[in-house]
Lab assay of single mutants.
Amino acid sequence: MKKYKITVYDEKTGEKHTIEIEMSEEELEELAKKLAEKHNVKVRIEKV
């Protein structure tokens, strides 16, 4: 498992949230996809 920083940005409201999380790359990609689809936000992932 690796550490990642996830930034979620909502273009409508301008809200931006960043968290650090430790998980596998596959789980992370699935999480990012679900966030983007369900909440209509942009998701950026960076390795820490």
Rank of each mutant, 00 (worst) to 15 (best):
K33M: 06
I21H: 03
N40R: 03
K34M: 10
Y4C: 02
Y9R: 04
K3W: 15
E30V: 12
I6F: 01
L35F: 08
E29S: 08
K34N: 07
R44H: 15
E29H: 12
V8Q: 03
S24P: 07
M23Q: 02
E29N: 10
E20Y: 15
V48T: 03
I21F: 07
E20L: 14
K38N: 13
K12H: 10
M1P: 11
E30F: 08
E25N: 04
L28D: 00
I19Q: 05
L31W: 10
L28W: 01
L35T: 02
H39Q: 08
E46D: 08
H39W: 04
I45P: 01
I6Q: 00
M1R: 14
I6K: 00
K42F: 04
E22K: 04
K42A: 06
K33Y: 05
E27V: 05
R44L: 15
Y9E: 13
E20I: 14
Y4G: 00
A36M: 13
L28Y: 03
D10M: 07
K42S: 10
T13D: 02
H17G: 04
S24W: 11
E15P: 02
V41A: 07
D10C: 10
V8L: 11
E15T: 11
L35R: 00
I19P: 00
V41D: 05
H17W: 15
K47A: 15
M1W: 08
E15Y: 13
E26H: 08
K42T: 14
I19Y: 15
L35P: 00
L35K: 00
K33Q: 10
V48I: 12
K5W: 05
H17N: 09
K42P: 04
E25F: 10
K33F: 09
V41M: 05
A36Y: 09
T18C: 10
E37P: 02
V48G: 03
R44K: 14
T13M: 04
E27R: 06
E11Q: 14
K2P: 12
E27M: 07
V43M: 02
L31V: 07
K16T: 14
M23D: 02
V43A: 01
R44P: 01
E46I: 03
E37Q: 09
L35W: 07
K3I: 08
T7C: 08
Y4L: 01
T7Q: 03
I21V: 14
V43W: 05
E37R: 06
E26Y: 08
E15V: 13
D10Q: 05
K34D: 05
M23T: 09
M1T: 13
V41L: 13
Y4N: 00
R44Q: 14
K5R: 15
K16M: 11
Y4T: 00
E25H: 07
H39D: 12
T13K: 05
K16I: 15
M1S: 08
K42N: 08
I21Y: 04
A36P: 01
Y9C: 06
K38C: 13
R44G: 05
L31N: 00
